[in-house]
């Protein structure tokens, strides 16, 4: 029973919207989001799971979309940075990053915000150490992290 190389159907929800499309099995979820769905808020950094710039949320869990095949999202709920704001109203994590200046070049920011959202949903009152460990899968080459940590801790103190 040899398998044929061909596009396969992907059915999932992306930012609350039902998606049904054909994708190449060798397309990563990152490629499906960016190249097919034109959701370019999710960034490609290292492409090997070190930097977390491509972090999206699948069924409530942060994952590196560069290490996930698009077809693995079949039947699941995917949230990207584009799905966080409620209309013109930013998500509290987005608001906190903005108010605290927790970014410089901004390339890592979507990944950080998605990681942070998933982390805080699970641990609403973390210690700083727990927070630093929880988001250790996201790298930032500009800020030195202090403002990112300050921004996130400001949410937990509210």
């Amino acid at each position: 029973m040899e398998q044929t190389i061909r596009k396969a159907p992907l059915q999932c929800r992306v930012n609350g919207q039902q998606v049904e499309m054909l994708v190449k099995p060798w397309q990563t979820l990152l490629e499906v989001l960016r190249d097919e769905l034109r959701l370019t808020g999710t960034k490609e950094g290292c492409s090997n799971g070190n930097c977390g710039a491509c972090t999206v949320i699948i069924d409530g869990q942060a994952v590196d979309s560069c290490l996930t095949l698009g077809l693995e999202a079949d039947g699941h709920e995917v949230t990207t940075i584009e799905g966080l704001a409620n209309g013109a109203e930013l998500h509290p994590v987005q608001q906190a990053f903005m108010e605290n200046g927790a970014l410089q070049c901004g390339f890592c920011t979507p990944g950080f915000i998605m990681s942070t959202k998933a982390f805080l949903d699970k641990h609403p009152k973390p210690t700083e150490t727990e927070l630093r460990t929880g988001i250790a899968g996201n790298l930032c080459r500009c800020t030195g992290y202090d403002k990112i940590i300050k921004a996130i801790m400001s949410i937990t103190e509210k």
Binding site: G49, G52, D64, G137
Partner: peptide, 8 residues
């Protein structure tokens, strides 16, 4: 790995 890796 990271949280993202552990989740998968």
């Amino acid at each position: 790995g990271s949280t993202q890796i552990q989740n998968r």
